[in-house]
Write a protein that binds this DNA or RNA. Structure first.
Lengths: 338, 338
DNA sequence: TTGTACGCGTTATCAA
DNA sequence: TTGATAACGCGTACAA
C-alpha cells in the first residue's frame, strides 16, 4: 500500500491553506510568486504527485479515452492504436485499452467498465460476432462521445472512420482491366462481414463499368485465410480451359497467398499465366516469390483521425456526425504483371 | 457532458438511504432480499452505472495496471499486451496502456501520469535510450508494485520476466555444432543493447564448449535490420576461401534475411554451401525460399507471467523478488540443413 | 436490517 | 492574494 503525499500535507508543512497549494501547483494566476515558489519546492522535496482520481471526481472529467480493440495480434490494430496514442498524448489524454477478443459479450462488459471508469469518450471497433447494438444506443443516449473506427455500425448516427474498401477494390480491379486483363476473378471473403461485401461490390463496380458481362462463376466464396484462398483458387482452376480467369482479385493478402500456392502447384506461372492481386499489404506480401500487388491501408491514419474526431467531440469543438474515409493506396509489385 | 445516475438518486427514488442502495448493489449480506430486488430493478431501469472513480478514491484502489510499452508497431509487444490483458481481465484488473516510442523522457512522463492515475501496479519495458533509473527507484520507494518485462533493469531489486537470450543463442548454436558444422559465424547486433550482448555471449558459450578456438573474424558486427545483415554477410563472404563460415548464427531474423540475400547473390546455396539460423521467429521466416531455422519467443507468455506476478504483488500474495525466465523454443526449418 | 456522519484528495465558490 | 466551506460519488464505522 503506497504512501502518498497530499496537497493537504504540503499545506500543513508550509502553514498555508490547501487551496493556495492547489492554485500554486496548477499555475493559477492569483498566487503570490514567492508563495508559488515555496510550494513548488516543497512539493518536489516531499515527492508530491497529484491524485488525478480525486481531481477527476470533482472536475467530472478524466482526460481518458477508452479504446476498444477486437483483436490485437495482427499488425493492423496495433498500428491504429499507435495513431490513437500519438494524438491523445499530444492533446493530454490517456488511453485505457480494452481487448474484446472478437467476443460480443466481452465487448459489452468492457464498455460498461470503461463507462464506470468515467472515460471522456469511446473509440470502438466492434467484434465480428456483434449483432445487437443496444449498448451503443445507450452510450449515445448518455451523451458519451463515441467514434467507431474501421468496423462501423450504420444507422446509429455515430461518427465513423473507415477504409474505402469498395473504392479500393474497384481501384485495384480497374488497374488490372487497364492493363488488358479480361477474365478477372474474385476470391471473396465471408459473406456476412461488411468488408467482404464492400470489396465484392467494388470488384463488381469496376468490372461492370467496362460493359463486359460479369461471369458469376468467376466470383468464388473464399475467406480471409490462406486455406480458403487456396481452395477457392483450385475451384477457379478447375473451370474449363477457356473459362479460367486470367487475373484474380483476392479479398485480402493471406487469401492471395493461398491462391498463389494453388497456382504454382498447378504448374502455372505468376503473372504470365495468372495474375493476382491482394488487399491490405501484409508484411509478407513483398517477400513472396512473386511479390504481391495489393492495397496498402493506412491504419495509423485511421487511429489518428478517429482520435482527433473524438477529442473534438469531447471538447465540443464539433458535434457533426461524419463518416471519414481513409483511402487505400495501390502498391504495384510483380504479381499483377503490370 | 453525459448525465449520470448516482446511487443517491436511486435512494431518493425509493425513499431509502444511499447506504442501503450501496449494500444492495454490492451484494452485501445485511440487506433485506425484497429491498435488494427493488434496488436492483430500479438501478437497471434508471440505467445506473457505478462511478469507479469515486469508488477508487474511497477504497484507495483502482484495480488498474499501468503498462508501459516502448514500441507497438511490431508483433512482439502487442503479443505481450495480449498476455497481460488476458490475465488482468480474469483477475478483475484493467489496463492503461502507455506508449513511450523508445523515448526516455516520455517514459518518465508516462510513469508520472500512471502514478497520478493511482494505478495499483506497473508493468514496464524500458526504452532503449534510458540510462537513468532514478524514476524506478522512486517507484520502489513509494511501495508501488513494479515488474519489468522483456527489457529489465538489474540491481534495483525489481521483479523481472525476460527471455533467455543467452541460453537460446547457445542452444541454436549447439544445434549447428551437433550437426557437424565447424566454422560457424555470428552476425551480431548493436553493441550497446543488452540482448545483442546476451546472444553474442550465448554464441560464444556454445562454440567455446566444443574446445575449438573461437575465430574472432567470424564475429561480425551487424544490426537488427536487413541491410546490416546483408552487409555483414558480404563481409564474411569476402574472407579467403578456407576461412569462410560454413554456417551463420544471425542476431535476429531480419538480419538473417539480409544475410540470406547476400548468400544467394553470391551464387551460393542455402544450406548446402552456407547454413543459416535466425532468432525471434519473424512471421516471414517460414516463407523464405529456404525457410529459416530460428528461436521462437513466447511473447504472450511473458505478458501472462509478468501480469500474474504483478497481481500477486498487488494483492500481497507474494513479496519475493524473482527473475522469471521464459525459454525460447528451437524451430528447425530448412535453412540449417539439419 | 437500515440510517447517519464522515472521509477519500481535489477544486469551485465565495468571503475575507 | 488567501482561506473556509462545500461538493464530486461512494464506502467504512458506528449508531439506531
Amino acid at each position: 500500500m503506497p504512501k502518498r503525499v497530499t496537497a493537504k500535507e504540503i499545506a500543513q508543512a508550509l502553514g498555508i491553506s490547501t487551496m493556495t497549494v492547489s492554485r500554486a501547483l496548477n499555475n493559477r494566476p492569483n498566487v503570490d510568486e514567492k508563495t508559488r515558489q515555496k510550494v513548488l519546492e516543497t512539493a518536489r522535496k516531499m515527492g508530491y504527485i497529484p491524485n488525478l482520481i480525486a481531481k477527476s471526481l470533482v472536475l467530472r472529467k478524466t482526460s481518458t479515452i477508452g479504446v476498444v480493440v477486437p483483436e490485437i495480434t495482427h499488425s493492423f490494430f496495433p498500428e491504429v492504436v499507435r495513431g490513437i496514442e500519438e494524438v491523445s498524448y499530444q492533446a493530454g489524454y490517456h488511453i485505457i485499452l480494452a481487448h474484446t477478443n472478437e467476443n460480443a459479450q466481452r465487448e459489452i462488459s468492457v464498455i460498461h467498465t470503461l463507462i464506470s471508469k468515467q472515460v471522456d469518450g469511446l473509440l470502438v471497433s466492434i467484434s465480428q460476432s456483434v449483432e445487437n447494438f443496444e449498448i451503443y444506443q445507450q452510450v449515445v443516449q448518455r451523451g458519451l462521445p463515441l467514434v467507431f473506427y474501421d468496423r462501423c455500425v450504420k444507422g446509429l448516427g455515430v461518427n465513423c472512420v473507415r477504409l474505402d474498401d469498395r473504392e479500393s477494390a474497384a481501384k485495384i480491379t480497374r488497374h488490372l482491366i487497364e492493363h488488358g486483363y479480361e477474365r478477372i476473378a474474385h476470391i471473396s471473403g465471408p459473406q456476412n462481414v461488411l468488408i467482404s461485401e464492400m470489396r465484392l461490390k467494388g470488384f463488381k463496380d469496376a468490372v461492370e463499368a467496362t460493359g463486359i458481362e460479369l461471369d458469376e462463376r468467376l466470383i468464388v466464396p473464399g475467406g480471409f485465410h490462406e486455406e480458403s484462398g487456396y481452395r477457392a483458387m483450385q475451384q477457379l482452376l478447375a473451370l474449363p480451359a477457356g473459362k479460367r480467369p486470367r487475373a484474380v482479385v483476392a479479398v485480402n493478402d493471406p487469401a492471395a497467398f493461398g491462391a498463389m500456392k494453388a497456382i504454382l502447384e498447378a504448374g502455372l506461372r505468376i503473372p504470365q499465366d495468372v495474375a493476382i492481386v491482394g488487399f491490405s499489404d501484409d508484411i509478407r506480401a513483398e517477400l513472396m516469390v512473386s511479390p504481391l500487388t495489393t492495397i496498402r491501408q493506412n491504419a495509423y491514419e485511421i487511429g489518428r483521425r478517429a482520435a482527433l474526431k473524438l477529442i473534438d467531440l469531447i471538447e465540443e469543438k464539433s458535434n457533426s456526425v461524419e463518416e471519414i474515409v481513409i483511402h487505400g493506396e495501390l502498391v504495384v509489385r510483380h504479381s499483377c504483371g503490370c
